[in-house]
Simulated assay, not measured.
Amino acid sequence: MTEKRRVVCPNCDSINAVPTDRPAEAAKCGRCHAKLFQGFPIDLSSERLERHVANSDIPIVVDFWAPWCGPCRAMGPIYAQTTKSIEPRVRFAKVNVDENPQAAARYSIQGIPALVAFREGKVVARQAGLTDAQALRGWVERLAA
């Protein structure tokens, strides 16, 4: 029997069982048929974040940010580039703290940009502030291992 991983659809938030013996890059949602991995970070609300964190068998890295934050805007392209190179081993998401203050409060976000990594529904790592592409990639690669 083939082992499967739960992956939440970035489009409709349905929980999908993705066989580990098939390329995850080609996986599509069983409900809405959108690609499960699209090569860019997904925007999540507080509610959607909780659904993804609670129902995903792959690590999730979340960038807590705000549009008025200069370092956050500088981090955006670096984060997107890292997403393209590492996904689907890790899900990348973004949460706007101005629109989702309850998520920021729940995860004790005190400064932005802030990266929080989740595995099996729990926070496993944090990183605060602007970082370069190489450091970010190394941090995420260690989480994906």
Rank of each mutant, 00 (worst) to 15 (best):
M1T: 14
R6I: 08
R5H: 14
H52E: 14
V116G: 01
N55M: 09
S56H: 07
S14V: 10
V61K: 01
E25C: 10
G70S: 08
P71T: 04
P101F: 06
C72I: 02
W65V: 03
R6L: 08
Y107M: 01
G138E: 15
I78S: 07
N55G: 10
W139F: 13
K122F: 03
I15M: 06
A54Y: 02
L136Q: 07
G111N: 08
A27E: 07
G76N: 11
K35T: 09
D57N: 10
T2P: 15
G111L: 04
Q102H: 09
K84V: 11
I42V: 15
A93S: 01
F118E: 00
E120L: 04
P23G: 11
V61N: 02
A17P: 01
P67E: 07
G111E: 04
A117T: 02
R6H: 12
R48V: 08
A34N: 15
P19R: 09
E99S: 12
Q38T: 14
G30D: 09
I42T: 14
P23C: 11
L36R: 06
A26T: 10
A105I: 03
K35D: 11
G70I: 11
I112F: 02
N16Y: 11
P41S: 07
R89I: 02
S108N: 10
Q81Y: 14
E99F: 01
V116I: 11
P71R: 05
L36T: 09
A66T: 02
K84P: 08
K4L: 13
C9G: 13
I109M: 02
S46C: 04
E25G: 11
V140E: 01
P113L: 01
V8F: 06
E3C: 05
P113K: 06
S45V: 03
T2E: 13
Q134R: 15
V18F: 08
K28D: 12
K35G: 11
P19L: 10
R22E: 13
V18S: 14
D13H: 15
N100A: 03
D63T: 05
A17G: 12
C69G: 04
Q127K: 06
L44K: 00
E3K: 14
L49I: 01
I109H: 00
A93I: 00
D21H: 08
G30I: 11
I86K: 09
D57Y: 07
I109D: 00
S56P: 03
L115E: 04
T131F: 05
A80D: 14
K4D: 08
A103Q: 06
D57A: 05
G121I: 07
I86D: 02
T20R: 10
F118I: 01
N11G: 11
P101Q: 04
V8E: 09
E3W: 09
G76C: 06
Q134H: 12
N16H: 11
R6T: 12
V116A: 01
P67H: 05
I109E: 00
